[in-house]
Design a protein around this nucleic acid. Structure first.
Lengths: 190, 190
DNA sequence: CTTGAACCGGAGGTGTGCCTCCGCTAGAGT
DNA sequence: ACTCTAGCGGAGGCACACCTCCGGTTCAAG
């Protein structure tokens, strides 16, 4: 199984040194802006944050959707990497460790998912990568009797995504609530 | 314990027949628009949906915040009523019945909460009303041994709010995931 | 060092939303 | 029926976001 996401991202990145720097700055600024203002964040503000002209933004990302896709893809890329890192842990620990990273990812990504409907080709590829990376962790936990069998990986992701996308009083509360919900997942099937 | 929210809402509502009708239409249109476009929904679009001039919107709700507060308050009002209705059921059933209604409420309300920070006086009053209405249901379930005791009502609301605010493939998936998370809540404390 | 291609910034035209202001309309009290 | 006042609609000025276009700049290959 290959993960085409990385290649798609890389293919957009310009070759010249200054151009590449601008590209990265725009991606970071966009990630930040989308997390802060949601899908409707101002493109001119993103260019300002990145310290580049608005023209540069449009050359790299002709449409808002292009920007979404790139930000999203680069994050999915990282999550796929994490899945490989945690594969050596015990089944339940591996799963929850990955989900913890998924949490951090989801906080920023709420806006992107809100704007990117499933039509997008890149979105499809990213989702497949995600499932290919995290799915086995869940199945392993199921086989080890550590996760209930009357739910699937998609259910789990939705659950974690929902909980982590909400505003909590502090991180401790978020972790507590997440742990409680995961207790529901760990329940053995009746 | 009184719930001042209803009075606040009522106090805004104009006395004249046509004016009251416009007020209601604006509230409904705003609820719809906020659910659809989030907190940044266009006020002119809301006036259009309601079939009134933009001036009428501004006379009734001088600021965007006023509109948020009114929509939010009217919804909280309804939830408080539901809590009284379900009070006669068994502890766990009463709690989950109320949370199911909370779900429907939350889908629409995500946008409002996103825009209304805790400074708002009305928001404070609403939150108190919510806790006063739903809190006892949770405590009753705890005392009956049906809900774990190492979490509080706020944790529970955040959890349900998070899960229900997310996009699911269908209602069945949402219910399934919610039920799993609630299994975590029902777990007895170790 | 030279050179040309790739890249840059931002001015500016267009569209849309925000909010105010005021001449007109229609409900409510007599 | 009459009045008078609360309420109405939307034109218009301002601000800001979107996106295009092009003269100037900078990298990197030879």
């Amino acid at each position: 199984m290959t993960f085409p996401v990385g290649e798609i991202v890389a293919s957009r990145r310009p070759h010249r040194k200054d151009a590449a720097r601008n590209y990265d700055a725009l991606l970071d600024a966009a990630r930040e802006a989308f997390a802060e203002h949601g899908a409707e964040a101002s493109l001119e503000d993103i260019a300002r944050r990145a310290g580049v002209g608005i023209g540069t933004l449009y050359r790299n990302f002709p449409t808002r959707r292009d920007l979404f896709e790139s930000v999203y893809a680069s994050d999915v890329n990282e999550l796929v990497g994490v899945a490989q890192e945690v594969a050596a842990l015990e089944p339940w620990e591996a799963l929850t460790a990955w989900l913890r990273r998924f949490t951090g990812y989801m906080v920023t990504k709420r806006a992107v998912r809100e704007a990117l409907n499933d039509e997008s080709e890149i979105f499809q590829a990213c989702r497949e990568s995600m499932y290919a990376a995290g799915g086995p962790l869940f199945e392993r936990a199921q086989e080890a009797g550590e996760a209930r069998k009357d739910m699937d990986f998609v259910d789990l992701l939705r659950m974690v995504a929902g909980i982590t996308a909400t505003a909590f009083d502090d991180d401790a509360q978020r972790d507590r609530v997440l742990a409680i919900a995961l207790d529901g997942v760990r329940t053995t099937v009746r």
